[in-house]
Structure formats: C-alpha cells, structure tokens
Amino acid sequence: MSTMEGYNFAYLDEATKRMIRRAILKAVAIPGHQIPFGAREMPLPYGWGTGGIQVTASILGPQDTLKVIDQGSDDTTNAISIRRFFRRVAGVATTEHTAEASIIQTRHRIPERPLREDQIIVYQVPQPEPLFRLEPRRAETKRLHALADYGLMHVRLYEDIARLGHIAKAYDYPVMVNGRYLMSPSPIPAFDNPKMDRMPALQLFGAGREKRIYAIPPYTEVRSLDFEDHPFRPIRAPHACALCRSTDTYLDEVITDDAGGRIFVCSDTDFCAERQAAAAPKEAAE
C-alpha cells in the first residue's frame, strides 16, 4: 500500500523519534523505572493510545509487521484505526496473527500465544504511576521509588484483604520488576501478569498524557505483589470458551440477547480463531 504524501515515515519527525528512542534505551537500562519524555500531540485524543503510538512509531521500520489489539481483539475501533494509521503513514505490513507480527501494540491484554525473542510488545498506559491512588504528590512518589519505600502499596493490599477477604485488584495489578522498582503493568488483567515474568520479548510501555516511558527487557523477573498467606492468584471466569472450548484462556462475557442470554468467549480473538480452525478439520473427518 502506498503511504500518504507530506508525512515523514511513521508520522513523527526524526528528531522526535530520536528523543523517544533515547528514553526507551534509558528505560531498558533501568527496568521498571519511569523515564519522562516530551510526548507530542498525536492525531487522536489522549486515552486512545497516544503513548503506545509514539513508542511504536519510534521503533517501527519498513520491514516490520504490526499487530494492534484492544482488549485482546483485532477488530475493535481502536485497534483498526491505529493499524490503518500506520499502514497509511508508514506503509508497513499489518497482521492479525500474533505469530506473524514483529511489533504488537496492545491495550489491556497480552496475547495468549507466548511471545518470542524477535518480537516487541508495546503497551498503551493511561497511568504509569502505581502509587498514584495512594500518594497524590508526584515529588513524593519519585522519592518513594528512589528509596524503594513500597510499604504503602502493601497497606493497600492489606486493606483489601481486611475488608473483602481477598486482594480485590483484578487489573493493573502492581508488580515488582527485577526486585527493585514497583511498576504498573498498565490495565491488563491480573491473569496476564504471570506472562510478563521472564518473557522472551522486549516489553515497552508508553503513557502519552503522563509523558512517561518504561520498559522490561527480555527475561527479566516480574513478580506480582502479595502476602505469604494470601498468594497472588490470576483470576479468570470459571468457564470454557463457547467458540473454541478453551479452559485456560482469559474470557470475555458477551450478552447475546435481551432475555439474559450470555456466553463466555476468548478475549484474544486471534488465538480463538486459530483454535477453531485447528479443530474444524478433525470434526469434519469424524
């Protein structure tokens, strides 16, 4: 596909890309540490993935294949418009298949298929500061990070157990990266947290409105916070996918009619479709 006239490759100018790449390099050097960067105005509003788009634009090359998912799905508005954006301004190949992608930009999910060393996953992050709800002063949270003073986060988990009997955080579940920095994994479900631990792929996080970039290098330890007697549990709906019968993937609840009918289906549409395709010939043969 031909690219649009009048735009630099991948929309951002080269000076901006260099600035963002410098921030990314620094972020990779200090896993989990938030690096400020000069986020640019993008042709879509804050909250729609401006941070993720800028990171993707800075690392994208003409030979890359891009996949964009939103809540695990390849065909929601956000995913389609970002994919089309990069097709138009960079002319790169796009795909809906996790295995074929070299860069995956995501909102709210990590693909079910394990990622490889030659892939990069870019997260869209609304709020990079894990202590945001606990300590409103930015200067103070920076000090807490510098001193690795994270008792406050455990107080929050304690409060959940005291009031509800279990840790109630089901998404954006705080993690310790490389045993040093407390990090927000972006609003992915807690179910996906274990996938971040020692992932072979490079993980980059971009927050456009908050102007922060952070990263987890490949094979880095990522541990979800918990208590010894209340260990971390990945939460998923206790059902099988209605389409592919999978019992170990993250499920969405979908309402099917006005009479209370509902089904549970895989949130990762690509993974679900592949399983259905693999199952279909066997059924035909029987």
Binding site: D149, G151, L152, H154, V155, Y158, I161, D226, F227, E228, D229, H230
Partner: peptide, 11 residues
C-alpha cells in the same frame, strides 16, 4: 504500615 515498610509479608 510500619511492619510492612520493614518487610513483613505475612497477613
């Protein structure tokens, strides 16, 4: 809080 700040991790 002070217990957790100095590393207590058993609820």
């Amino acid at each position: 809080e002070r217990l957790m700040a100095v590393g207590a991790r058993h609820y």
